[in-house]
Amino acid sequence: MTYCVGMRLNAGLVFLADSRTNAGVDQVGTFRKLSVFEHAGDRLMVMMTAGNLSISQAVRQIVSSHVGADGMTIWNAPDMFEAARIVGEAVRTVHRQEAGKLAEHGVDFNISIVFGGQIRGERCRLFYVYSAGNFIESHDENPYFQIGEAKYGKPIIDRVVTPRTSLDDAAKCALISMDSTLRSNVSVGLPLDMLVYEDGSLAVTRFVTIDENNQYFQLLRNTWGQQLKSVFEGIAPPVWDAVPGPASDAPSSANLHSRPVRVAPPPGVAAAATAAPLQSLAEQPVPPVQR
């Protein structure tokens, strides 16, 4: 499987991808999923893929060599929208060539792409390309896209990343998002490829491949785990057997909605002792635990 995340910020772009692929528990491999199209001083584009590996590799090859009827290529497209259209058309080309044959063997045509970058004369842009070749663009309301195993790493990004987030903070958030995914899903794995692009640079200036020996990633995952546990322990536990307050919506056991759905025993089952009174959570905030 895969986890990739791309972020579009006022300061630039952040891309992070894992490199694990698997077609079963005994067919695990490492393949790079982040590809760079760079013409220094003119354009810098990044493509990350998830889904069927053979489809992804075919799409990447077609994108790099595609020449349209009008002579347009990824290397001379006037803007990122047109470049994204070339990527989408490459997906459709592979679908026409391979989808039927794959279906004969019970294999779905499965690919998703995060594609972004900057062409001289316009701002940074980020796109999500679907299996049908259509795509959407990131805007300020949604400054990031994820593909693959997205659910584990999504909460931290939703809480932290906005267009105003700095590149370094966004990179740190992306790595925490990836670490959360690595801990919860064995189909995502090291090494990682991370590219951080500064708006206007039109070249790769910050790139790193991260393996299990990377000191910063070790520091981040250890510190994040410790801080999460510390914050968790700093939140007061629930207080039970609260006294109902004057508010009509107090979480009291006297409230019908606070009663469990009880299944009556069948006839002939001896009656048990009288049920214990229900306890309710305290309705008043309690102070945090002092550490």
Results as ranks from 00 to 15, higher is better:
residue 164 R to G: 07
residue 204 V to L: 02
residue 109 F to C: 00
residue 183 R to K: 12
residue 23 A to E: 15
residue 266 P to H: 14
residue 70 D to C: 03
residue 179 D to M: 09
residue 205 T to Q: 12
residue 146 Q to F: 09
residue 50 A to I: 02
residue 183 R to N: 02
residue 91 V to D: 06
residue 112 S to E: 14
residue 10 N to Y: 10
residue 11 A to G: 07
residue 113 I to W: 09
residue 190 L to N: 01
residue 272 A to W: 08
residue 193 D to S: 15
residue 291 R to A: 13
residue 99 A to G: 09
residue 129 V to P: 02
residue 140 D to V: 04
residue 274 T to L: 13
residue 139 H to V: 07
residue 282 A to E: 10
residue 49 T to P: 02
residue 234 G to S: 14
residue 69 A to L: 13
residue 172 K to W: 08
residue 280 S to Y: 05
residue 141 E to R: 05
residue 231 V to E: 07
residue 146 Q to C: 07
residue 207 F to N: 00
residue 197 Y to A: 06
residue 272 A to H: 11
residue 153 G to T: 02
residue 26 D to R: 12
residue 249 D to Q: 03
residue 221 R to K: 12
residue 256 L to H: 15
residue 167 L to A: 04
residue 247 A to P: 01
residue 153 G to Y: 02
residue 35 S to H: 13
residue 127 F to Q: 00
residue 216 Y to Q: 08
residue 98 E to M: 13
residue 139 H to F: 15
residue 43 R to H: 14
residue 76 N to I: 09
residue 64 S to L: 09
residue 47 M to T: 01
residue 216 Y to F: 08
residue 187 S to P: 00
residue 258 S to Y: 14
residue 173 C to R: 08
residue 225 G to C: 00
residue 5 V to C: 04
residue 103 A to I: 09
residue 67 V to C: 09
residue 148 G to E: 04
residue 84 A to N: 04
residue 191 P to N: 03
residue 209 T to A: 07
residue 216 Y to G: 00
residue 36 V to F: 07
residue 27 Q to R: 10
residue 99 A to H: 15
residue 14 V to S: 03
residue 129 V to M: 01
residue 275 A to W: 12
